[in-house]
């Protein structure tokens, strides 16, 4: 356990010292500022636009940061051969994958918290009165980031190219937002083969419908308990499945 926590801790330190990561963080903060501009264009809906756009940018930043973080951490480590010195020590290979993932996710979530602080400050300046929905929206964004991070770790082991890993992860993440459309397609299709194909895709792809708090927050008393339970359980199980597959791949990998 000490070695797992050590991997997570140094991944976290590495992330924050990585210039590329800091540049992404800077652009995240900058885009928050840009949302002010869009807010100004929206006249009396200014606060609403800054609110929505800020949350969208937080989610996008989180996905981009965790995606590039996962791909560069694992693939770069294999290409630069720093992994040799780790795997020749008494470190179970599964610990390596889980430690890397935890360090990465924690570093991204802390960045997202920073973005949240900037966002709330901007909203406060514009006279926004605090809405508890905001606090409920952030954990769902973090859960999405955890799922995308786990997918990215899997694809960075599955593929030997960083570009292919990014493309596969983005493709899966995008399709994950179209769960209900895919279900509709399966229902309308008459061919057994295409129904089977679409249903397989639905099962394999992450279903971000479970984590789209924006879809339900107009309902009084939201977020409903079921969303917390199903969303949380789904994200944890999906990420665990991706990490289990990653560990299986990594255990057989030669260096």
């Amino acid at each position: 356990m000490k070695s797992l926590l050590s991997i997570a801790r140094y991944t976290f330190v590495q992330q924050f010292r990585n210039r590329l990561y800091l540049v992404v963080l800077f652009f995240g903060a900058l885009l928050m500022g840009v949302s002010l501009l869009f807010g100004a264009l929206a006249a009396e809906q200014e606060v609403r636009v800054i609110f929505d756009l800020g949350l969208l940018l937080t989610e996008l930043f989180g996905i981009v940061a965790v995606l590039f973080g996962a791909v560069t951490l694992v693939l770069e480590e294999m290409e630069s051969k720093t992994i040799y010195l780790l795997l020749t020590r008494p470190l179970p290979r599964g610990f390596y994958i889980v430690g890397r993932y935890l360090g990465l996710v924690v570093s991204v979530v802390i960045s997202l918290l920073l973005m949240g602080v900037i966002h709330v400050t901007l909203l406060g300046i514009k006279g926004w009165s605090f809405d508890p929905h905001y606090l409920a929206a952030l954990p769902f964004i973090y859960l999405k980031v955890c799922v995308v991070g786990a997918l990215a770790v899997f694809f960075s082991l599955f593929s030997s190219s960083a570009v292919a890993s990014v493309v596969f992860t983005l493709f899966f993440s995008l399709l994950g937002h179209f769960g209900s459309e895919l279900t509709f397609l399966a229902r309308k299709s008459e061919s057994v083969l295409s129904v089977l194909l679409v249903k397989t895709i639905i099962v394999i792809m992450p279903n971000f419908q479970f984590l789209n708090y924006r879809d339900v927050w107009h309902i009084p008393g939201s977020p409903p308990l079921s969303l917390w339970v199903w969303g949380g359980a789904y994200a944890v199980l999906y990420a665990a499945a991706c990490l289990s597959l990653s560990i299986a791949l990594f255990s057989r990998k030669e260096f």
């Binding site: 000490k2 070695s3 050590s6 991997i7 140094y10 330190v13 590495q14 010292r17 990585n18 630069s80 051969k81 720093t82 040799y84 010195l85 780790l86 020749t88 020590r89 008494p90 470190l91």
Partner: peptide, 30 residues
Amino acid sequence: KTKMGYLPEMPYFYRYLSAREVLRFYGNVS
């Protein structure tokens, strides 16, 4: 593995860590 130490032909390390941090890291993992 706890009884083995390895020096690769060209050792590669984490660019953003200092030597002390790297050694502490490997010490923890060992």
